[in-house]
């Protein structure tokens, strides 16, 4: 199974949100999850495609994948540490 085929336990649609909120909302959501669970984040804010993985990786979580889910919408998969 590829990393992008991992079934997320939770999904967070952050379309329409810009800095600093995509990172804040992602961190908040991950805090509520159990270790090992996977969160799928959708964002249409290109800077968040870098900022979210950077911030979450610094907290020790695993960024499984980032990519464009549909034109202009990006998908980030994060596994909680």
């Amino acid at each position: 199974m590829t990393e992008t085929a991992v079934q997320p336990h939770k999904k967070l649609d952050l379309s329409g949100e810009v800095c600093p909120w995509p990172v804040i909302f992602t961190q908040k959501e991950v805090k509520k999850m159990a270790p090992g669970e996977v969160l799928e984040v959708l964002t249409d804010n290109l800077p968040s495609v870098t900022n979210i993985p950077d911030a979450l990786a610094k907290e020790g979580h695993q960024v499984l994948a980032t990519g464009e889910a549909s034109p202009g919408v990006y998908r980030i998969l994060i596994r909680k540490k």
Binding site: V18, C19, N45, P47
Partner: peptide, 14 residues
């Protein structure tokens, strides 16, 4: 007015 209409994003920069 969604905030995206108030920004002009090129690459990573707004």
């Amino acid at each position: 007015i969604p905030i995206g209409e108030v920004l002009h994003i090129t690459g990573q920069v707004a």
